[in-house]
Computed example of a mutant assay.
Amino acid sequence: MARVTLQTIADRVGVSRMTVSNAFSRPDQLSSQLRATILATAEELGYVGPDPSARALARGTTGAVGVLLTHSMRTAFRDDIATGFFGAVAHELAPTGLAVTLLPSYGSAEVIPARDVPMDGALVYACPEDAPALGWLVRRRLPLVFVDCQDGRRAASVTLDEDGGAAEAAQHLVDLGHRHVGLLTISFDGPHGVVADPHTAGAGFVPRARAEGWLRVLEGTDVRLTAVQVPDNTESDGYDGARTLLTLPDRPTAILCFSDVMAWSAVCAAGDLGLQVPDEVSVVGFDDSPLARRVRPDLTTVRQDLEAKGKAAARTLTEAIGRHRAGNPEVPEDVVLPTSLVVRGSTAPPPAA
């Protein structure tokens, strides 16, 4: 079978090769009727469109953006917050025609996605500054937007008011009358377990910001603090950390948790220890993920707007890509999105002494 080309279609329709090319890449240059005729002829002849690599070379753009993940894709797709954010980004980018490519932070010596995958720019999602894959994106001089993390090179960022949301959660427990509060947070690199000084709890941009918000309210009051760090934001780690807090000789009457996943784990640990939530111990999460509304008791938590975060990240990145193509200097933009406390069934005043 002879190879079908743009010229083959042009000859069949009786137009120029450029007109056929415009039907695929610059539809605004043609009448709707002529474009429909060309596309119908192309389909009849089995032509799927111009070669993407050649089109990218001609345009100077790949038509794709990357999202760099700290962990593996399997881990990311088990996270309601991550998947909600990805969906919001994809929805916002859909009208632009830009495709979204997920980039794991790992790779073989031969294939490193952050180094080798063609893209016009990338979102860096919750990654540490020293992530090797991030180094490749920086060396490629791609437009970058940091989400739930920040960068010392002054690239644009989209973050939450982590501090303000955490402070609101802590104030809620103080107002309820709690005077011994546990902090359950994460530190990927350790140390893990009870932290001698609660002011050192939380490692990484988001964990540290949330811990600072808690402490801003709680320090200087008569509230006692006990902090526990665990390796990761998982149900198993959250469960172990909560058991550590709840089996102390003088256990806290409330726990502020890094996430809803860890808060639900704390509820489960309390139940296994024969403790009622919220009658004997209150639990507060962070994120207001679907999990927070699905479990019983439903979780008091700090809400973040994933749709707004995805929209802001996509908009900031497309604007950065546009400036980059035009040769304009980078104008870093720091977007900080609000959070709000949602009070539900997992918090109550402490049990009477």
Rank of each mutant, 00 (worst) to 15 (best):
L337T: 11
L45C: 05
S108N: 01
L39I: 14
T185C: 06
L306Y: 12
E319L: 00
V67N: 07
V295F: 04
D51A: 11
A42H: 03
R17F: 06
F286Y: 15
A326Y: 09
I38M: 03
V283K: 09
G193N: 04
V267A: 08
A40K: 12
Q33W: 01
S32T: 14
A114P: 05
G202T: 08
A122D: 11
P132D: 14
H172Y: 06
A266G: 11
V117R: 13
V281N: 08
T244I: 13
G14P: 02
L45N: 09
P329H: 10
A352S: 11
G87P: 08
L291S: 07
G285N: 08
V206N: 10
A94V: 06
T75C: 01
R210I: 07
P290Q: 05
T221K: 07
L291R: 09
V145S: 01
V284T: 08
G322F: 07
I186Q: 10
Y106P: 00
P290H: 04
K311T: 12
P113I: 11
A58T: 10
R55M: 13
T159S: 08
A42C: 07
G135F: 09
V331K: 14
V158Y: 07
P104F: 02
L45S: 00
T300M: 08
L137Y: 13
Q33M: 01
I112R: 15
I38Q: 06
S32R: 15
Q171W: 12
A166F: 05
P332T: 05
A348R: 13
L256M: 02
A58P: 02
V217M: 03
L102V: 11
L142N: 03
Y239R: 10
A320L: 02
V295R: 02
S105K: 01
G66C: 07
G60L: 07
N328E: 14
T253R: 04
G220R: 01
P350A: 01
D250E: 15
P278F: 04
G285Q: 05
I321D: 11
G285A: 03
I38A: 05
L102F: 02
A170P: 08
L98K: 14
